[in-house]
Amino acid sequence: MDAVFSNFDDYLKAFGLTIGLFVVAGIASLVWGTILAVLRVGPISILNKAAALYVTLFRNTPLLMIFIFMAIAMPVLGYNFKFVEDVEIGGYNVSAFFFRSCIALTLYTSAFVCEAMRSGVNAVPLGQAEAGRAIGLTFAQSMQLVVLPQAARAIIPPMTSVLIALIKNTSVAAAFGMAEAVATMKALTNNNADQRTGIFLAFAVGYIIIVEVVALASYAVERKVRVAR
């Protein structure tokens, strides 16, 4: 454990990066996954099929392969996303590595978000959407005002699982230039072979804390949604 405490700065930075990847990829996945879910249940046949194809493609591809594609194949093809490094947000520059990692995580996770959303939407009786349309709501309005608020309760448990999986999946970025928790753990164990177990426990605890925070937040939201019904 000494190695962790004497490098506590690195430890915090590592989990900071893990959380950063989680938050950015998580928000992007929720947005993109929701759009996909709406396309999947929407009235336009070609978009249904396109969204279904997307889900099939990215849900069935190992995350590692998506990372290899984004981080290794794309740069070889000439797309290295270096342009994002010119963008400054609040004094910070986003690195192309962070950006590519977030894209890889989002491409993958959004497929699962879409399916979690869809299962929630399917849990809402069809008559609710019909009643919404019958009073003249557009498809988008009936999704937004009628279906999704009711789907929320059914969506939250599977969505929580998707987000927790995302937290752990950020560790794949360790092998693609991100000094997040797992990469830092490897560096510490490599340099401190005698403290392997302690270092491992310290990083496991870090993950447990993040996952528990997300799980508790989801229980809180679930309770709130339940009261609203």
Partner: peptide, 22 residues
């Protein structure tokens, strides 16, 4: 949108009520 506008002109009452549960 045009269909939505038309549906607004047609009231519908369902067998299973379909009130917005939330």
């Amino acid at each position: 949108k045009a269909l939505a506008a038309l549906r607004a002109e047609v009231g519908m009452v369902f067998q299973s009520f379909n009130l917005f549960a939330h």
